[in-house]
């Protein structure tokens, strides 16, 4: 279970999240909905430990983010990720010269290391950057990446390109989805994965989310619109307005938002 308790977070002097709590079980799909500026993306960043945000306890209550019983709050971003957390970025920056495949390879080895790490640099320089990941050879891994890429309509040539370098909005989102499917996280957060996608791409991304959920990943979809929720069906919906969860409900709640918007909550919270 991913259990988030009493998280209050600020950016500089500005308080953005105020006493936020949420629990997600394996295989569940949660939607966090809210208007622009409600703190949705901050919520996603704070889970991963983005250095720009400061997390403080709320009114004497103990703040915590526990992943299957392990406290993440004091851990560095990469350690949280190694424990099984994943974030698909809303608008990931490019890293020229670092190919999609190279990043996936490196990330997978870090996140799924073999129990006992083999000594690096055995033998020749060409092979010195050896592969070591649990239960899969490099050849199998590369085949798996290519196969997933095909399934979500990513052309193989993309895997050789610099990550997000010159990619369109939709291509970026698909590569983020590819990354999630390859890395097999225990809990995954998708930040505005539906913005800027055409219907076909939206369906592909939705199918990816459904696939992760079926594999047992606990998924949180952060979104402004109900659009993607026509293709995936959350078991839980949470409405975030001005940094506070104002309502928790089932999938039906998202449909109501589609009709009524956020106006009602915004009046309440002011």
């Amino acid at each position: 279970m991913l259990e988030i308790k009493h998280i209050t977070a600020s950016f500089g002097e500005k308080k953005i999240l105020n006493d936020v709590s949420l629990s997600v079980h394996c295989g569940e799909l949660h939607a966090i909905m809210g208007p622009n500026g409600s703190g949705k993306s901050t919520f996603a960043s704070v889970l991963l430990g983005h250095p720009a945000y400061t997390v403080v306890a709320t009114k004497g209550k103990k703040a915590s983010i526990e992943l299957d019983g392990v406290e993440l709050l004091k851990l560095a971003t990469y350690d949280r990720v190694k424990k099984g957390l994943f974030l698909a970025f809303q608008s990931p920056l490019s890293i020229p010269g670092v190919s999609v495949m190279h990043l996936l390879r490196s990330a997978y080895q870090e996140i799924h290391p073999v129990a006992k790490k083999l000594e690096e640099n055995l033998g020749n320089a060409i092979f010195s950057k050896g592969w070591s990941a649990e239960g899969v050879t490099l050849v199998q891994f590369i085949e798996r990446v290519k196969s997933i890429a095909r399934e979500i309509s990513i052309d193989e040539s993309f895997l050789k390109r610099g990550i997000h370098d010159g990619f369109s909005g939709g291509e970026k989102k698909k590569v983020e989805m590819l990354t999630a499917l390859v890395l097999l996280p225990k809990y995954a957060i998708f930040d505005e994965i539906d913005t800027g996608l055409d219907v076909d791409a939206l369906k592909i991304v939705a199918a990816g989310i459904e696939r992760l959920r079926k594999q047992g990943t606990g998924v949180i979809v952060v979104t402004h619109y109900q659009r993607i929720l026509s293709y995936v069906h959350p078991s839980h919906t949470h409405i975030l307005v001005n940094g506070v969860f104002v309502e928790h409900g089932t999938g039906a709640l998202s449909e109501r938002i589609e009709k009524e918007g956020y106006a009602k909550y915004e009046k309440v919270s002011h």
Binding site: L48, T77, V81, I95, L103, S106, A107, E110, L183
Partner: peptide, 18 residues
């Protein structure tokens, strides 16, 4: 950029060298 790579399981040093 650093945060992105760290969110893929890489340490700061690994991210920087990448």
């Amino acid at each position: 950029q650093m945060f992105y790579l760290e969110s893929r399981g890489l340490t700061k040093e690994q991210a920087q060298s990448m």
